[in-house]
Lab assay of single mutants.
Amino acid sequence: KLPPGWEKRMSRSSGRVYYFNHITNASQWERPSGNSSSG
């Protein structure tokens, strides 16, 4: 399961899957890690 705020999306241009955070408006190709504590 993804960390809070993150969701899986697909890029229309490349067709690749990326991850988008609707809370911080951040996007990245790598899967966000939800196990590590923020610090």
Rank of each mutant, 00 (worst) to 15 (best):
R31I: 10
P4H: 09
N25F: 09
G34R: 09
A26E: 15
E30R: 04
W29I: 08
S33N: 13
S36D: 13
E30S: 04
S33Y: 09
N21T: 00
Q28Y: 04
P32H: 01
G39H: 11
E7V: 11
R16Y: 05
Y18R: 02
Q28D: 02
S14H: 10
T24A: 03
S38E: 14
Y19M: 00
T24F: 04
S27H: 13
P4S: 07
E30K: 05
S11Y: 07
S37Y: 07
G5R: 01
S14C: 11
S38L: 11
V17N: 06
S36A: 11
I23Y: 11
E30H: 09
S11L: 11
S13E: 11
P32N: 01
G15M: 05
S13Y: 09
P3E: 04
W29S: 07
K8V: 15
R31D: 11
H22P: 08
W29F: 09
G39E: 13
G5P: 08
I23F: 11
N21W: 00
W29T: 07
F20A: 01
E7P: 00
M10I: 15
Y18D: 04
K1F: 13
S33H: 08
R12E: 10
K1D: 15
T24N: 06
G39R: 10
S33T: 15
G5Y: 05
R9C: 10
G39Q: 11
S14T: 14
S14V: 06
V17D: 09
G5E: 05
R9T: 02
T24E: 03
Y19F: 07
Y18E: 04
S36M: 12
N21L: 01
S37Q: 12
T24Y: 04
Y19D: 01
K1L: 13
K8W: 05
G39S: 12
W29Y: 10
S33E: 12
P32L: 02
L2H: 02
W6R: 00
E30N: 06
E30I: 04
Q28H: 03
K8L: 14
H22L: 14
R16F: 07
K1Y: 11
K1W: 14
N35D: 14
R16P: 03
Y18N: 01
G15Y: 02
S37A: 13
P4Y: 09
N21F: 04
R12C: 15
G39Y: 04
S14D: 11
Q28G: 02
Y19Q: 00
V17G: 03
M10A: 07
G34V: 13
Q28A: 04
R31V: 13
K1H: 13
A26Y: 06
K8N: 02
K8I: 15
R12W: 05
A26V: 15
S33G: 11
L2A: 02
F20G: 01
W6A: 00
R31M: 10
N35T: 13
S38H: 10
K8P: 08
F20W: 09
S11P: 02
R16L: 11
F20Q: 02
R12V: 12
N35A: 12
E30W: 08
W29N: 06
R9P: 00
S14W: 04
E7S: 08
R31G: 03
S11I: 12
S14N: 10
I23V: 10
N25W: 05
S37V: 12
H22V: 15
R16T: 07
G5M: 04
L2Q: 02
G15D: 06
K8M: 15
T24V: 03
S36G: 13
Y18K: 02
Y19W: 07
S11F: 06
H22S: 13
M10Y: 15
P3A: 04
G34D: 13
L2V: 06
G39T: 11
R31N: 09
G5K: 01
G34S: 12
L2P: 15
S27Q: 08
M10F: 15
S13K: 14
S33F: 09
P4A: 09
E30Q: 08
K1V: 14
N35V: 12
G5T: 02
S11A: 10
S11M: 10
E7W: 03
K1S: 14
S36H: 10
Q28C: 14
H22K: 14
K1M: 13
S27M: 15
P4F: 10
Y18C: 09
R31A: 10
W6Y: 02
P32Y: 00
E30C: 09
S27I: 15
T24H: 03
P4R: 07
F20M: 01
N25M: 12
Y18L: 02
R16M: 08
S11C: 15
E7Q: 07
R31S: 09
P3F: 02
W6T: 00
S36F: 08
R9M: 06
S33I: 11
E30T: 06
S11Q: 11
N25T: 06
R9N: 02
P4E: 10
R16E: 10
N21G: 00
R31E: 12
E30V: 05
I23H: 09
S36K: 10
E7L: 06
I23K: 06
G15E: 05
G34K: 09
W6S: 00
S38G: 12
L2M: 06
N21K: 00
Y19T: 00
Y18I: 04
N25Y: 08
V17M: 07
K1I: 14
P3W: 02
R16W: 04
W29Q: 06
A26S: 10
V17C: 14
G39D: 12
S33D: 13
A26W: 08
P3D: 04
S27Y: 14
F20H: 08
G5A: 04
I23L: 11
W6K: 00
S36E: 14
G15S: 05
Y19I: 00
R31H: 14
W29M: 07
N21H: 04
S14A: 07
Q28F: 03
R9Q: 03
S13C: 15
S13G: 11
S37N: 12
K1T: 14
W29V: 07
V17K: 04
Y18Q: 01
Y18W: 07
G39L: 12
N25Q: 14
R12S: 10
G5V: 02
L2Y: 03
N25A: 07
N35M: 10
S13R: 14
P4I: 08
R12D: 09
L2F: 03
M10G: 03
T24K: 03
E30D: 08
G39I: 12
S13D: 10
S14I: 06
Q28E: 03
G15T: 03
S27L: 15
W6G: 00
W6D: 00
I23W: 07
G39N: 12
S37F: 09
G15H: 07
H22Q: 10
E30L: 05
S27A: 14
P32S: 01
S37T: 12
K1G: 14
G5D: 05
N25H: 14
N21A: 01
K8R: 13
M10H: 10
S13I: 14
Q28R: 04
F20N: 01
M10L: 13
R9D: 01
W6I: 00
N21S: 04
Y19A: 00
S13A: 11
P3R: 02
M10T: 15
P4V: 08
L2R: 01
F20S: 01
K1Q: 14
K8E: 13
P4M: 08
G15I: 01
H22Y: 15
G34W: 15
Q28K: 03
G39C: 13
M10S: 08
Y18F: 09
S38F: 09
S36I: 10
G39W: 05
W29G: 03
A26M: 14
H22W: 14
K1A: 13
R16N: 07
L2E: 15
S27N: 05
S11K: 04
L2G: 01
R12A: 14
G5F: 06
S33L: 13
H22F: 14
F20Y: 15
G39M: 11
T24W: 03
V17S: 07
S38P: 13
S11T: 10
I23N: 08
G34A: 13
I23T: 07
Y19R: 00
W29L: 09
P32R: 00
S33Q: 11
G34F: 14
P4Q: 07
V17Y: 12
S14E: 08
N25L: 12
F20V: 06
W29A: 06
R31L: 10
G34Q: 10
R31F: 15
A26Q: 15
Q28V: 03
